[in-house]
């Protein structure tokens, strides 16, 4: 079963990477130009979102409408939190600032990791460092709250 899950994730990850490459989102210059309405604006990213949602919205409805769960797992793993709190909004704001500074986001940088551009591993390493620091911060905040 593990093997099937791995093969499935590999092939679907391939489809995801293909989408990132074909959509042009693998190119940070295109992403940054989307955010530069006052300058060299390139609206392509909005079309990527539109194309993705045009498939994901009806696709998810179909998948969740099945009486049985996923093919390779006993059940769907879905986020359980539903509050819009300071943590979510503050985190998303920091994310957006970093995205605007670097031009990369995780989903677009991973498919570019093998292409030989030095910028990609530098960005990915910085993201990993950020996640590790955020974990430590979160643990600290949690212990303060309970103390």
């Amino acid at each position: 079963m593990t093997m099937q899950k791995v093969v499935s994730a590999f092939l679907i990850g391939g489809l995801f990477g293909l989408g990132i490459a074909i959509s042009g989102m693998i190119d940070p210059a295109k992403v940054l130009n989307f955010f530069d309405i006052a300058g060299t604006w390139d609206p392509s990213l909005a079309f990527v979102m539109a194309g993705g949602l045009a498939v994901a919205l009806p696709g998810y409805r179909l998948v969740f409408g099945r009486r049985r769960g996923p093919v390779l797992e006993p059940s769907f793993s879905l986020p359980t939190r539903n509050s819009i709190d300071r943590e979510l909004v503050g985190g998303a704001a920091l994310f957006g600032i970093g995205w605007g500074v670097a031009g990369f986001c995780p989903g677009a940088s991973i498919p570019a990791l093998g292409l030989g551009y030095w910028q990609v591993p530098v960005f990915v390493a910085a993201v990993v460092a950020g996640i590790i620091v955020a974990r430590a911060l979160k643990a600290r905040l949690a212990s303060h709250k309970t103390a």
Binding site: I97, G100, V133
Partner: peptide, 15 residues
């Protein structure tokens, strides 16, 4: 790249 990536990492964890 380093500053942006670091902010993305922190933000993505909290966000």
């Amino acid at each position: 790249l380093i500053v942006g990536g670091f902010l993305v990492g922190i933000g993505v964890h909290f966000g």
